[in-house]
């Protein structure tokens, strides 16, 4: 197999438009089995990344942002059920307010480069682009497997007598 990311990525990408709302993203994430949602404009250019992590955080109580640990909270009381106010708010928040930098690699980048970017930026799924257009996505497991595969292939096979 080739050592470029293009030959190992998934080409069916679940993505979301920039003018979608947080509620749309929540619905999409609830249906599809993905953790990262690339945000694209109408022409398919990658403009940002949002994720399951970011979206569910919105529904967490405020104190998560201010206390260091929650070991001692055994019962979340009033906030155990999602508040209708939060759902109303989620309808108004645009995804463009909830996205991070569009980390990505070109289709013909090497696996090593993809792996290095993933590890240093601490991201779980890496979008793959070609001339700015989103063409695929590779998870940490996809890249890790591909990388280890090619690496193990290099081990000299024992010579048969």
């Amino acid at each position: 197999m080739s050592r470029t990311i293009g030959s190992w990525m998934k080409t069916e990408v679940v993505s979301i438009g920039a003018d979608a709302t947080l509620l749309d993203a929540a619905r999409l994430l609830a249906q599809k089995k993905v953790g990262t949602l690339p945000v694209v404009d109408k022409a398919g250019h990658l403009i940002g990344l949002t994720s399951m992590r970011k979206i569910v955080r919105f529904f967490l109580p405020d104190f998560i942002n201010v206390v260091e640990d929650v070991d001692f909270v055994l019962d979340f009381g009033a906030i155990d059920i999602p508040s209708p106010i939060d759902i109303k708010k989620a309808e108004k928040i645009k995804i463009s307010e909830m996205m991070d930098e569009p980390e990505s690699v070109e289709k013909d980048s090497s696996l090593m480069r993809a792996l290095a970017i993933m590890v240093t930026r601490d991201i779980l799924d890496l979008p793959v682009v070609h001339k700015g257009i989103l063409v695929g996505i590779a998870s940490r497991v996809d890249i890790g497997r591909a990388f280890l595969h090619s690496w193990l292939d290099e081990i000299p096979k024992p010579k048969k007598k």
Partner: peptide, 13 residues
């Protein structure tokens, strides 16, 4: 103290 107070207030609603 304030973060724990936020936590307690939220749990109480």
């Amino acid at each position: 103290i304030a973060p724990v107070s936020i936590l307690i207030a939220e749990i109480l609603g």
